[in-house]
Nucleic acid binder design. Sequence first.
DNA 1: TGGGTGACGAATT
DNA 2: AAATTCGCCACCC
Length: 119
Amino acid sequence: MKLTDESKAFHYAVYSVVTQIPYGKVTSYGHIAYLIGRPQNSRLVGQSLKHYPEIMRQLGENFDIPWWRVLSSSGAISSRGNTSGEILQKHKLIEEGVEVTGVKVNLGLVGWFPDEVDS
DNA sequence: TGGGTGACGAATT
DNA sequence: AAATTCGCCACCC
């Protein structure tokens, strides 16, 4: 995974937003893309989270981020081919008091969709 | 370099 | 309510 200056900026922006999601709340890939001014790049937000351990290493950062608070716009835990990551995400959410029925959460209840965030 | 891909989203069945 | 369809676009061969 190679990082250009451009993609580094993107990843930093993503992580800045993800770290601001409150405990017990969730948001969507698309809303993160919106908040960082790249509304057409929701898929790239997913890729960023998928590879975040290596990306953070390459960026020289070592903090962890609450990736489990990011869901699809329908409130469902996104499928990624193997179930272990999804199971873990569900457990992490339940752990912080979020009700998960099947793979879904009630966004009206625990959704976090601000119009802007701190930069 | 062109085409397949995807932790997506909105609209449409 | 759930599955399909289609648009999207950076990334990676």
